Computed example of a mutant assay.
Amino acid sequence: MSRAPRESNSLAAGIAMLARQEGCNSTLHPGVVVYHLTAAEPPTPLLYPSSLILVGSGEKQATLGDQLFDYNADHYLVVTPPLPMLCKTIASARRPVLTVQIELDLALLRELLLDVDLRPPPQPARAARSVFRAPLPRDLEDAGARLVACLAEERRTRALARQTIREMLFLVLEGPYGDSLRALAEGPVSQLSHVLRHMTTRFTERMMIGDLAQMAHMSVPTFHQHFKTMTGTSPLQYMKAVRLTRARQLLQAGGLVKTVAHDVGYESESQFSREYRRLFGAPPSASTQLTPREER
């Protein structure tokens, strides 16, 4: 009989100290943000960055296709490439969601693999996972708690944050899905992840499938096949989701519909409004009435 997950763990107090505002809070270390969420939210399309996410309290659910990933005080989540997914927030003022999100630094990951020569043990071949959830071991929880503690002070952040993140990556590599994290640094997964990062940072530009396939060093048919396996969608639908989730953030921050449509790469405001409604179930104007939040 499985036990219920803990309501909180040793990261909660440290995250609460750093997350002074509702929603997303930056920290002293680039690539690390913390979230404080006190309102429940139904499954909503969001763009998850390539990241390791640890939860101090509360619970969230990510959905990719027909796969559901619960992450909470007893389970961490890893998203290897940037992925549009549905995100459900299970939170209240009494039991807020407190999370720390650590960007996966490919240079640091490759450095780690080179230094310690982490060879995966022999096992049956299996496809690398774009997203995985795993039980949070005590040593990874302890490292996460030390990370959020050092982020409270600039000198400690400079001295300790990078090496603590490196330790956390090592522990994930030694976990049940370490091969999926390792794949991010080498082979077809690495090649595609480079393309996905390019697409999410330059999403306003017009992109040709042939150019993206060439960037991944693949033929167009092979690129389509690997892309669908990794993201669960086509390059066109992926780019559309990236643009629209970014548009939602801009609208919630007070942007005008016409300006936002242009800023995320749409030439036609009417097309933007149609596709926005199709994805979010409401017109863009509805998002301008919401409290600005960036959630993962």
Rank of each mutant, 00 (worst) to 15 (best):
G178S: 05
S180P: 07
Q123T: 11
S8T: 11
Q101H: 03
R243I: 00
I165K: 06
E174C: 13
R129C: 11
E269A: 12
Q163R: 15
L236W: 02
T233H: 01
P135T: 09
F132T: 03
G178D: 05
T291I: 13
L104K: 04
L196S: 11
I102H: 05
L114M: 02
P96K: 05
F69R: 09
K258G: 11
R296P: 00
N9A: 04
R6P: 00
T201Q: 14
L98T: 04
A247I: 01
H262P: 00
P284V: 05
L86M: 15
P120M: 13
V131H: 03
L98G: 06
D115Y: 02
F69H: 15
L140T: 10
S190C: 14
A40T: 12
L212E: 10
S219T: 15
R110L: 04
E154H: 02
A125G: 07
A286M: 08
S26A: 14
A286P: 01
P45H: 04
T259E: 15
E269R: 12
A261L: 07
L112G: 08
I90W: 01
R162W: 01
L83T: 12
A93K: 14
A143Q: 06
R197T: 03
G178W: 07
A13M: 04
A213C: 01
E7A: 11
V33F: 05
L64F: 02
P122N: 07
E269P: 00
V116A: 03
M230P: 00
F272R: 07
A4E: 14
A4T: 11
A185T: 08
Y71N: 11
P221C: 06
E41A: 12
L113T: 03
D115V: 09
R94T: 13
T291Q: 14
A286V: 10
T63N: 04
P84Q: 10
P81Y: 01
H217S: 14
E294D: 12
F223R: 04
T233E: 03
M17R: 15
N72G: 02
C24P: 00
G281L: 03
V32C: 02
R126E: 08
P235V: 11
E167R: 15
L108S: 07
S8E: 15
P120H: 11
R197G: 12
V260R: 01
R155W: 07
P292A: 15
